[in-house]
Design a protein around this nucleic acid. Structure first.
Length: 423
RNA sequence: GCUGGGGUCGCCUAGUUCGGUAGGGCGCAAGGUUGCUAACCUUGUGCGCGAAAGCGCACGGGAGUUCAAAUCUCCCCCUCAGCGCCA
């Protein structure tokens, strides 16, 4: 959520940020409505406050008169009059406050000044590359074909049990998935992230805190009046400290969690239909940081590096791109995507997205820290470290050699073997 | 699900019987003082409006009664304990 004061004092900056995001809809109208409501709110609120001040003065006078047995009819009459007016004014301010908040919840974060301008993902600049590409579509069996051939990835029964975009894994591939989760968590916890096992179902307030709601309800699975399946562990992790005040000396706080993630993938019809690239349910190890505002952009660099390290240890070639203003997610002020080389597709595919959400989520979820004698919003960051299913794909394809999958050294202890036979 | 206890500032707590300015302690911050690793004093320490002085709001949430609600009434939420059910 944006600070209403920013809209009040510098609406041009907010308008400009929406423009460079190529933000859809009548955002400028929304801003005008907010500014209008805010102006009315301040006017009505002032009147309300003044009346309340008068009533507060009358209170003790009435009490005094009654105690002394003196008549207080005039005072009572005036007080009644004021109370009636206050009732109406309060109704008015509450309505305006609600309207303002409703509008604010739909506005995205302001991109950081360093973010490159652009319209679509085609405008995302490449920041760096790592690893040598050794396999292309000519050299390998795609993970889909490999799954079919070995019978270890079962899309048909996934569809039977649930619906399209679900699958069942068996044997060594199921185990490889589990090994990857354990490996990722061990690496991240050894680097100062606290492992967390959070709920996979959260309430509406929690979903609103990180920005999934109210705008993106159609992307989420709802399971009850007020409960939703998480689309990422970012949601429970970031909201872990909602409504709390953190100690400045404890910052940054670094959390890591493995969870399944559930996404409707609305609007992705026809995309990535074959295989494990885009499932309704997938596993992910997520990294979240609560940072001092002064250092959050350095923390973003470090967080991205922490995610990259996993691919380096697994010897999977990747590149890092930066999202341009038009491609930036709703809550993010700056985002790096890490893309792993997928041989069967002859291209890099997103495997992690690392963002600094600045105070956008902290304001929604009310997460502050004490510094000196006052409170300030923290900055929140999140990034995948990594998406497990896509890592599995990258591994199955990049490490395919003569009908075998060679398990990278760092993973062998977790996997309990050095290779998987797929002939 | 049932019965009972509880929810007041970052933490702890007073106030609720009997309606009338929400007080204290700890922690933290700034300043001051003192002859010693410490103590003490003053001020500040939730949110909003305002240039400021100041004013208002805030006692889990909402509604009601009242001139006036932390306090009385009703509904809801959370939590703890016991019971029931249960992997």
């Amino acid at each position: 959520m944006l600070d209403i004061r920013l809209i009040r004092d510098n609406i041009e900056k907010v308008e400009e940020s929406l423009r460079i995001r190529h933000y859809e809809g009548d955002a400028t109208d929304a801003l005008a409505r907010i500014k209008d409501h805010d102006l009315s709110w301040r006017k009505v609120k002032k009147e309300d406050d003044e009346l309340r001040a008068e009533r507060n003065k009358l209170g003790p006078e009435i009490a005094k008169a009654k105690k002394a047995g003196e008549p207080a009819d005039d005072l009572l009459k005036r007080s009644t009059e004021i109370s009636n007016k206050i009732k109406n004014l309060t109704l008015e301010t509450n309505t305006l406050e609600e309207k303002i908040k409703d509008e604010l919840l739909y506005l995205p974060n302001i991109p950081d000044d360093s973010v490159p301008h652009g319209k679509t993902e085609a405008d995302n600049p490449e920041i760096r590359k790592w690893g040598e590409i050794k396999k292309t579509s000519k050299d390998v069996l795609s993970h889909f074909d490999l799954g079919q051939k070995t019978g270890l990835i079962d899309h048909e029964r996934g569809v039977k049990l649930a619906c399209h975009r679900f699958c069942v894994l068996y044997g060594d591939i199921a185990k490889l998935e589990r090994a990857l989760i354990n490996f990722m968590l061990s690496v991240q916890t050894s680097r100062g992230y606290l492992e967390v096992a959070p709920p996979y179902i959260v309430n509406t307030k929690t979903m609103t805190g990180t920005g999934q709601l109210p705008k993106f309800a159609s992307d989420l699975y709802k399971c009850d009046e007020d409960l939703w399946l998480i689309p990422t562990a970012e949601v429970p992790l970031t909201n872990l400290y909602s409504g709390e005040v953190l100690e400045e000396k404890n910052l940054p706080i670094k959390l890591a969690a493995y969870t399944p993630c559930f996404r409707k993938e609305a609007g992705a019809y026809g995309k990535d239909i074959k295989g494990l690239i885009r499932q309704h349910q997938f596993d992910k190890v997520e990294l979240v940081k609560f940072s001092h505002p002064n250092t959050s952009f350095q923390e973003l660099e470090a967080l991205t590096k922490d995610a990259e390290r996993i691919l380096e240890l697994l010897e999977i070639p990747y590149r890092v791109i930066e999202l341009c203003t038009g491609d930036l997610g709703f809550g993010a002020a700056k985002t790096y995507d890490i893309e792993a080389w997928i041989p069967s597709q002859d291209r890099y595919r997103e495997i992690s997205s690392c963002s600094n959400c600045t105070d956008f989520q902290a304001r929604r979820a009310n997460i502050k820290f004490r510094t000196g004698d006052h409170l300030e919003y923290v900055h929140t960051l999140n990034g995948s470290g990594l998406a497990v299913g896509r890592t599995l794909i990258a591994l199955l394809e990049n490490h395919q050699e003569d009908g075998q999958i060679l398990i990278p050294k760092v993973l062998q202890d977790f996997m309990g073997k050095e290779l998987i036979d797929i002939r």
